[in-house]
Design a protein around this nucleic acid. Sequence first.
DNA 1: GATAAATTTACCCGAACGGGTAAGTGACGA
DNA 2: TCGTCACTTACCCGTTCGGGTAAATTTATC
Lengths: 214, 214
Amino acid sequence: MKRPLKKLNEIRIMLVDDHPAFRKGMAALINSEPELRVIAEAGDGGKALELYRQHRPDVVLMDLRLPGMGGVEAIMAIRKDFPDARVIVLTTFDMDEDIFRAIQSGAKSYLLKDTPEDELAAAIRAVHTGKEILPGKVAERLAARRRRADLSLRETEVLSLLAKGRSNKEISSSLFITEDTVKAHLKTLFAKLNVKDRTEAAINAIRQGIVHLE
Amino acid sequence: MKRPLKKLNEIRIMLVDDHPAFRKGMAALINSEPELRVIAEAGDGGKALELYRQHRPDVVLMDLRLPGMGGVEAIMAIRKDFPDARVIVLTTFDMDEDIFRAIQSGAKSYLLKDTPEDELAAAIRAVHTGKEILPGKVAERLAARRRRADLSLRETEVLSLLAKGRSNKEISSSLFITEDTVKAHLKTLFAKLNVKDRTEAAINAIRQGIVHLE
DNA sequence: GATAAATTTACCCGAACGGGTAAGTGACGA
DNA sequence: TCGTCACTTACCCGTTCGGGTAAATTTATC
């Protein structure tokens, strides 16, 4: 497949975001930078994968909230076929779980949409040269998540049911364990999360993004 | 104060959003429509008010999440000095409480940022002619909020404390009432919200946007 | 194989919660 | 003035929760 000629030193960028207006604006911002050029835009994950195959951009800027396939899934899909793909997550939210999953899925950077223009350009250039770059605020969040990561698998399951409003009895039957066991998990859970009761734990879980509302 | 001449039939628009990229993209989209033209952009509420005075746009497109003064406050500030100001809220979130407060504060329409271009243009034209226009999805949310509006003031206070993780005892002392009274409110609250316990109520409240996380 | 961690269950007990019922006050509109 | 509704308090009672303690089993790690 023929692709348009690439100028030397030019970094070719694909934007993935479901808001056309945002893509247009972002493209304008990026194109105003020397050496950076937007060469493709996708509005959803499927289109992103298709256009990646077609254009092989140097860097992908990806929103996480996409219709259909989510951003994380899109990143994984792309990196499955192209393990060298360099993806920067560019999203509105700075929730721990999102950040964690994005990095897990192979994103090289995680920026918020209100990141200043120059920082964004710097991040794109850095990622293009193979670096991984996380802004301080995001790194903190990731650290917070890691601190939370000492929740065991089972504890996470219990927490996520709890944060859906389930009672201990309901949780126990969902997980095929006794209520006593659920209570045992809750004890360690409350201690680890540093909360006093299930309601606080639920709020905590929601804020952390362990469970997604809606 | 001199203002640039206005072409006949041209609708002059001000954008208020803290993301420069979004503003730029939105401006490009809007300017591509005949008769619509972006004549000012603001990144926060204070700037919005200042530019409103200066340019008197026909229609304002306003995000709700702004640094410093929030979008709702910005709308109120503008409409205090210019009661005829026509503001369309253009935001990422479709949370009941946000919608409600925006409409309360005098917004004429409430659109999500992923609204198709033609619908957006139609909404701008409609609002400019004095109409109020709410997409079906948003109207539903507003209706849901109204359904919830049969929560009394006191019940709302109790719910919002509950959704912060407070115990009945804590709630009672915060509101200077007895624990029994709190429990009485909870009884009606659970019934109205159609939930079985405080954790579900808290989740509900958070989803509804009664309490904001963080 | 030993040690550590995760997972599971059990029992006791006090505190918190939630439902039912009843009733007094003040405000507001019919 | 009567009725309705929000708000308030109270008491009873059964259920759920959460903390303390203990221990068996499996899995992972060294």
